[in-house]
């Protein structure tokens, strides 16, 4: 789509928007349409030049450009013909409904009804159905999500029961929650850890319980962007990847891909060890060679233990649960 068509489409929404909100600030209007103030100004100048056929002053849309340039507020009038926006296109409806599906995956169950009814209203707004999309993300238990949303809204400090990542042990960190974010299809709680005195990310599907502490949260500013942490701490490791393991290029941050050679950014060596073990013959570290040593040692030790166990005649005699 050309820039010009984009601008026409935008003006057909912007004009009724501004018409209904006399005196709105430039900043607010620009934010509502994801525009820079400069782009918004250029839109206003176009609106200023348009109107009913005839081109007489009374026919044109009026924009008080003095108020725009002086006070930074917009007063647009004489645009009754564009009092309503253009209908939503089916793909626009589809896009919003897809976004709502993402919201639903991460929301607490108390919000489901509002999300579903918003989506149902959108569905009636375009002539035919938009594209079908199915979303699946890893966002943990819905009661955990609701407890976290409640704590965020009430600005409460909580104690998590967390079945941690690479090390695999269970901890009970006391945290001040800041936000729930998505990265690569997984939901994370960004929170200030009081034990560590720093920002930490907790994967929602590994949070087993959220308990109130009774205390309010303190203000620790905003959590850092996760991508920044990665670039700071990450080491680059290059693997030769066979087709069955190619999914790792989509699931993890890569810094380069060349043929079957994939360079991953690795923060935690234990994570790399687990990845290499699970991929088996489908991927092998080529650089730096030592990055694979832990996995090789772990595999050798495991094989010894498997042999010792079958050597001892170990069989599973009894499957009763206790």
């Amino acid at each position: 789509m050309s820039t010009s068509a984009d601008q026409v489409a935008r003006l057909l929404a912007l004009i009724p928007y501004l018409r209904a909100r006399p005196g709105i600030t430039i900043a607010e209007a620009a934010a509502a349409f994801s525009l820079t103030q400069k782009q918004l100004m250029s839109d206003l100048w176009v609106a200023f030049m348009c109107g009913l056929p005839g081109g007489m002053p009374g026919d044109l849309i009026e924009v008080d450009m003095d108020a725009v340039e002086g006070e930074g507020v917009i007063r647009l009038s004489n645009a009754d013909i564009l009092s309503k926006p253009l209908r939503l296109a089916p793909h626009e409806v589809g896009t919003l409904r897809l976004a709502l599906q993402a919201v639903r995956e991460i929301a607490g169950p108390e919000s489901y009804a509002a999300i579903d009814s918003a989506s149902a209203k959108l569905a009636t707004m375009s002539g035919h159905d938009g594209p079908v999309a199915v979303v699946s993300m890893v966002t943990g238990d819905e009661t955990v999500r609701q407890a976290l949303v409640d704590a965020l809204e009430a600005r409460q400090r909580v104690r998590l029961t967390y079945e941690g990542g690479a090390r695999g042990d269970t901890t009970e960190p006391v945290v001040d929650p800041a936000a729930i974010m998505m990265r690569d299809g997984y939901a994370y709680l960004e929170a200030w850890s009081l034990d560590r005195s720093g920002w930490r990310s907790y994967r929602l599907d590994r949070i087993v319980a959220v308990d109130p502490t009774g205390a309010g949260r303190e203000d620790h500013g905003t959590p850092p962007e996760r991508t920044e942490w990665l670039s700071d701490a990450a080491a680059e490791v290059t693997l030769r990847v066979e087709d069955p393991a190619w999914w790792i290029t989509e699931s993890y941050p890569t810094s380069s891909i060349s043929g079957s050679l994939v360079t991953l950014r690795v923060v935690d060596p234990r994570w790399l060890r687990q990845l290499v073990l699970r991929l088996g013959a489908d991927a092998e570290v080529v650089d730096p060679p030592a990055a694979q040593d832990e996995a090789v040692l772990a595999a050798r030790e495991a094989l010894k233990r498997y042999e010792a166990w079958s050597g001892s005649g170990g069989v599973v005699a009894d499957e009763r649960s206790v």
Binding site: L98, A133, V135, M137, V138, R183, D184, Y186, S251
Partner: peptide, 8 residues
């Protein structure tokens, strides 16, 4: 249709 699974 489109499927979005774990960011893919």
């Amino acid at each position: 249709g489109v499927l979005v699974r774990r960011g893919v």
